[in-house]
Computed example of a mutant assay.
Amino acid sequence: MKVYGVTGWKNNGKTGLMERLVAEFTDRGLTVSTLKHAHHSTDVDQPGTDSHRHRTAGAQEVVLASPNRVAIMQELRGAAEPSLTELLARMRPVDLILIEGYKREAHPKVEVHRKAAGQPLIAPQDPSIRAVATDTPLDLDLPQFDLNDTVEIADFIANDLNLT
């Protein structure tokens, strides 16, 4: 499986770009999955549901299955957060996995940068960043794309990964 990341500081547009890239690559006929890292505590389950009751009773893993989707919730219960490599190994094979976050990992990435966010660029210190999607021209020796030009960014990623 091929992997590519979208990284950058908070409120720079990572999720919007991810959403557009997933749509663009699936429109091109590729199978795509995503992996999103959250620094904060997150819960996709709701109190009162049967699956939530199973987890709070002590289950290590709860699988919720329906005709439309399957959700697997695993409780770490004090164990270390799985590494990116471990998480990728658990995913079903697809043509492309797009990763949001995981700034410090070594997979290839596009950095999202908005001038108004006022954050410094990560790219100058990170050789895994291959390009920057931005709303302003930057003095940087990397390919730069208009943040809203999803097709051009997708073309760059596809070429970088030799996806057809």
Rank of each mutant, 00 (worst) to 15 (best):
H40V: 09
T56K: 07
I122A: 10
V3K: 03
N162G: 02
D139P: 03
D155Q: 10
P67V: 05
G78I: 07
T15S: 15
K2H: 02
G16C: 15
V151D: 05
L98V: 00
F25A: 00
V70D: 08
G16V: 09
Q144H: 10
E111H: 07
E19W: 15
D141L: 06
P124E: 12
Y102W: 07
T42H: 02
E111F: 03
H113V: 00
E19G: 15
L147I: 15
P67T: 06
T26P: 02
D27V: 04
Q46V: 15
I72Y: 12
V63I: 12
R92T: 12
D50G: 06
E19T: 15
L163T: 04
V3C: 12
P124F: 08
D27I: 08
F145H: 09
Q60E: 09
T150H: 11
G13C: 09
L35W: 06
K10M: 12
S83A: 10
H107R: 12
Q119M: 13
P137T: 01
V94R: 07
M91R: 13
V110S: 13
A123F: 08
R28H: 10
D139R: 01
P137A: 00
T42P: 06
L84H: 10
F156L: 14
G5W: 14
A59K: 00
P82S: 06
N12Q: 02
A79M: 07
E75V: 04
L35M: 05
I153C: 03
P93V: 13
P137Q: 07
V62N: 11
H107K: 01
K109F: 02
P137I: 12
R28M: 05
L87V: 12
S51W: 01
A38I: 04
L64V: 15
R130F: 01
S33C: 04
R90N: 10
V110Y: 09
L21C: 03
K109Q: 07
S41K: 12
M91V: 09
I97G: 00
I97S: 08
E75T: 07
E81V: 12
T49C: 00
L142E: 13
H54M: 14
D43H: 00
V22H: 08
Q125F: 14
G101D: 13
G5T: 13
D146H: 00
A158M: 01
V112G: 05
A123T: 06
R90Q: 15
S128F: 02
I99H: 01
N68F: 03
A59I: 04
N11G: 13
R130N: 05
E152T: 14
R20Y: 04
H107M: 10
T31D: 08
P47H: 06
L163A: 09
G101A: 00
K103Q: 13
